[in-house]
Design a binder for these strands. Sequence first.
DNA 1: TCTGTTACTGCAAGAAATCGCAATAAAATA
DNA 2: TATTTTATTGCGATTTCTTGCAGTAACAGA
Lengths: 144, 144
Amino acid sequence: MTHCHTTIQSLRRQGFRITPQREMIIETLTQSNAHLSAEEIHKRIKPRSKTINLATVYRTLDLLVEQGHATRLIGKEGKFLYATRQHSRHLHLVCRKCGRAYAASYDGLQPFLEQLKSTYGFQVEAEHVTLYGLCPHCIHPPNQ
Amino acid sequence: MTHCHTTIQSLRRQGFRITPQREMIIETLTQSNAHLSAEEIHKRIKPRSKTINLATVYRTLDLLVEQGHATRLIGKEGKFLYATRQHSRHLHLVCRKCGRAYAASYDGLQPFLEQLKSTYGFQVEAEHVTLYGLCPHCIHPPNQ
DNA sequence: TCTGTTACTGCAAGAAATCGCAATAAAATA
DNA sequence: TATTTTATTGCGATTTCTTGCAGTAACAGA
Ligand SMILES: [Mn+2]
Ligand SMILES: [Mn+2]
Ligand SMILES: [Zn+2]
Ligand SMILES: [Zn+2]
């Protein structure tokens, strides 16, 4: 059972309809183990499906995020990017000054997430957390 | 010394020019201890400065975030919101399903942030972290 | 205070993301 | 398989955010 099929079956079980467009979007996002923009996904599908519309891509990505099959983050250039949740687990450390992005282990985060769960009943999904701050290159005497 | 003046002096020290537009934007954001959209800030300033342009508001907000005086987050309705960093410290727990947002203490997060600092040399600014997941209302047997 | 440099602004154009609506097609049912 | 229901699509319009550029004004230096 591929990750792609798992997603499709889960959506079907929730009562969503599986259209060729949705299949192609899920397939594209799953097969590329990277962060893709809606535009990029659209561009990759176009050769196979001439009429697929960018709005459909956005709407499907919204659905995937809402249903927990994908995560949305803000890329270096300010555009939204999407990734499946099978995308290997890590944190993104993004420098607010230079925009550099570092991948970091989230191992030490677990105790805190469990604390949030017991305190608020909120189940954080930590596969793809983005934290902002200053990278080693940009740390300098505080702005006072 | 108000928070507003601290920001202005810090910017001046970094070599940025202090224009009336920038002063009004900083003042507006500081005095409202809330999350404001660029549009909302613009609307509030317009009566006092007829010609102020929305692009200037966006550019100033970018500057404030880059310089660490403000944080940017994605609001319930998908628009970007901004807040000063004097805005009381808390985490945002946002439900990916229903969009509900909870304010949470970030106290327990500190040890993990220190770990990130020593491992990666990255100084996370945790005043306004947004974590996504499922809220108590939306947690249900896994989609499986 | 006056002058020169150039960062900043307003404006208009452009790009990214969302939305309303009529036509279409997924899938449940007979 | 044919029928019915209604979620989903494509398309165009709209909204949100960004960018290029020429004119303006902040502020450093004389
Ligand atoms: Mn990632
Ligand atoms: Mn907040
Ligand atoms: Zn940096
Ligand atoms: Zn919820």
